[in-house]
Amino acid sequence: MSALQDAGERLTQTEAAPLIYVLTTTVAARTETRALAIKGVVLAHHGLRAPRVSGDVDVIVHPDDLDRFLAGMESAGWTANATTTTPKLLEYHSVDLTNDHWPMSIDVHSYFPGFLAPADEVFDRIWARRVEFDQAGHPVPATDLVSSAVVAALHYLRHPGLAHKQAAMETLAELATPLFAPGSQNATDLVAFARDTGCVRPLTPFLERLGLPTTPVHPAEETGYERWRLATTADPRMAWWLEFRALPLRRRPAFLWYALMLEDEELRTYHGDRTVSTPLWRLRVERWKRVSSHLAGATRQKFSGRRQR
């Protein structure tokens, strides 16, 4: 008993999650930043998902507060993983924080894909509706029922082709149906929130499922929807081609070189094998093999499609 802690004891995710929520809330208070718990246990709190432990904790921070919040988290021992600069069909939307002493990471969002209105405007709407829920005996600010439902639906609708996202969407719709019955205050609030944050068009499958109106009003829906549609229907690797095509000719060679090599840090983070011992050249070769294999498959599919026509 004299040893304060057995070195063999490991923190579980069930134990860690509530403490991490309290930790991020404390950091937000001390750095005078606005941060809210989203997804995960927040959905379960609102009855929008069955209770279960998530693999990470998600928070959303006001875009203007992001740097200060991350500095606070760094002081608390958390490290931001390298952010990839590879082309994306949707803007990169979170910073992944890890800490060797904790069994789960924290995704810090300053923007959530699918909300087409400006990120600060969206955050202000979410913040205005915030609620508090109890974690380890402490109040933790979180998204309310309406914004939680929208965030979850947009999350699942981002990958409509994936079976597990379809299943999650189906479950969400089933659980949300009695909570957002047409004519109810929740339903009115949901539609107003979707309109104010410019996500009516991305959210249309969910709104239709609930029997709610799908008329967008925010001007950002006109300009931003095509990108969302492309991002949710095209192969994500299409982003490389789109970016290449948009570049002036003189910048294309440097882009091709980058596409081939990537930065060392992002190669290790996003194409690594969770070790630091594998040489970078080997990671590059493995990535080239995967890209070649994908290109060969895509080409075969294309020619096969032509023959069938």
Binding site: L11, E15, A16, V22, A76, W102, H138
Partner: peptide, 24 residues
């Protein structure tokens, strides 16, 4: 701040956030 289960208690000190959580 503490999280308690049947056989364990995990502690986080809000005055020392960088300290690893303590497991009893």
């Amino acid at each position: 701040v503490e999280v308690e289960s049947e056989t364990r208690v995990v502690l986080l000190d809000l005055d020392d956030l960088a300290h690893p959580p303590r497991i009893l």
